[in-house]
Design a protein around this nucleic acid. Structure first.
Lengths: 142, 142
DNA sequence: GTATATGCAAAGGGTTTGCACGGTT
DNA sequence: AACCGTGCAAACCCTTTGCATATAC
């Protein structure tokens, strides 16, 4: 579930290994992706005492050591996911609210071109595209 | 500055023409892009009495009738801009915080491909890419 | 034993909403 | 005159922070 080296990564960053950190990491692994609140809910299925602010603090730490990332997929809370997941792009439908994922490879040619032209290096896992999913766009065209 | 048909667009949507709506629209035109707070500040250079909640309500209305759009470029407040601006993509540097703009045309081939493969229709003006600008990425590679 | 991490509660930013008044149509 | 829009203030959501306690090292 959670790789063997997560402890290494934390220690290398000067952080301690705590049950809360492990639980947060495992919760993300199980959920695939989730907001801080959702992650807390998942963590609390195992340990009810864990606090929201602990989740926030640990998400920050886990992100700093490269175990998780987050993407902003809408007006509300960001979504966190494990770094070792296959890298994907979020497609957020602003009409029905659905969030789909697609393999990030599809964007590589574009992002390469972008880097060539501007020097900008895109964090692929952080990409969220807004628009309309196929269902909603055909409904509004009809 | 503000096109001639903005009144038309509002009326067609069933909305009234008010000084506040005009001021918000003009402020966005002058700023090119800005958060609700920044737009309020610009509006208040002309009319001090205008309220933040009025700005929020009018941004929503102006967006609904197609006069402005917004993009989320970071953890904080969204950025609004006029629709008749040349359409651009935001490149947000997560290291130095700089936000660059680039003509959206560069993404068209990718977005076309995306639509072909998934049916997802992307709102181009709403795209914000996170990563590192050329300065920061060469600094961290060096 | 010491420094870091946690829980709790309060504070903080950004945004929305209820209500009475004022302005557009 | 009717209804929509505004200002004001309170409420709300999400996130951060101060502080005392607990825990990993």
């Amino acid at each position: 579930m959670v790789g063997e080296d997560w402890e290494q990564k934390l220690r290398r960053g000067g952080y301690r290994i705590t049950p809360q950190r492990q639980l947060v990491l495992e919760a993300i692994g199980r959920l695939q992706h989730g907001t801080p609140e959702e992650i807390l809910a998942e963590v609390q299925r195992t340990a009810t005492g864990v606090n929201l602010s602990t989740v926030y603090r640990n998400l920050e730490v886990l992100e700093e050591v490269g175990l998780v990332t987050h993407a902003h997929i809408g007006h509300g809370a960001p979504t966190y996911h494990a770094v070792d997941d296959h890298v994907h792009i979020h497609l957020v439908c602003d009409t029905c609210g659905d969030v789909a994922s697609i393999d990030a490879a599809i964007a590589e040619p574009f992002l390469d071109e972008l880097r060539r032209r501007t020097g900008f290096v895109t964090d692929v896992s952080h990409v969220a595209l807004h628009g309309q999913c196929s269902g909603c766009s055909s409904a509004s065209t009809a």
